[in-house]
Structures are given as structure tokens and as C-alpha cells.
């Protein structure tokens, strides 16, 4: 059974300088993924990078992963607004 910690580990290993906040109820996973590697990429490209890093490890469960990807600057700005 894939756990949020598994997903966090796979993503953080595969994307440089990456921080992942993740929670999940076993059925559904919500991840906020922050990395400077996303700079200059649109959302689709950012998510594709995460899917590529996850590869086949989440074949069935990938469907249950919702994610928000952003650069450190966007994350900081979001915090200010939140």
C-alpha cells in the first residue's frame, strides 16, 4: 500500500532542492511540491516532471494524487497571502 511518506520520498529524491508537504487518507493524496526546478515551466510541465519522477511506482494510485506545484518564491508569496 503506498503511503504519503513513500510519495514524499520518491518526489524529493527525484527533484533537486525539493520540499514536499503531503497528506492522505489512504484513498486520496494531496501534495504541495516546492522546487526551484519548476521555474520557467507551466503547470502541465511541472506536473509531468513529478509524474516522470514517480514513474511506474504509482501505477494505480497515481489517480488518487492531487498536487500543487510551485517555485519557492510562489510558495513564499502564497504564505503571505494565506
Amino acid at each position: 500500500m503506498v503511503t504519503p511518506e513513500d510519495i514524499k520520498g520518491w518526489i524529493e529524491q527525484g527533484i533537486s532542492d525539493c520540499r514536499v508537504e503531503i497528506n492522505g487518507d489512504g484513498q486520496h493524496f494531496y501534495a504541495v511540491i516546492v522546487s526551484p526546478e519548476f521555474a520557467g515551466q507551466n503547470r502541465v510541465q511541472q506536473h509531468q516532471l513529478v509524474y516522470k519522477v514517480l514513474g511506474d511506482r504509482m501505477k494505480a494510485e497515481i489517480h488518487a494524487l492531487s498536487m500543487q506545484t510551485m517555485t519557492p518564491e510562489e510558495y513564499a508569496a502564497r504564505d503571505g497571502a494565506a
Binding site: 503547470r43 502541465v44 506536473h47 492531487s66 498536487m67 500543487q68
Partner: peptide, 11 residues
């Protein structure tokens, strides 16, 4: 043009 899945659509 591919826009995204439900996450990106919501954003």
C-alpha cells in the same frame, strides 16, 4: 492544446 487534469482545471 492539452490544458490539464482536474487539479489544473480547478486552479
Amino acid at each position: 492544446e492539452f490544458i490539464g487534469g482536474s487539479d489544473i482545471m480547478m486552479e
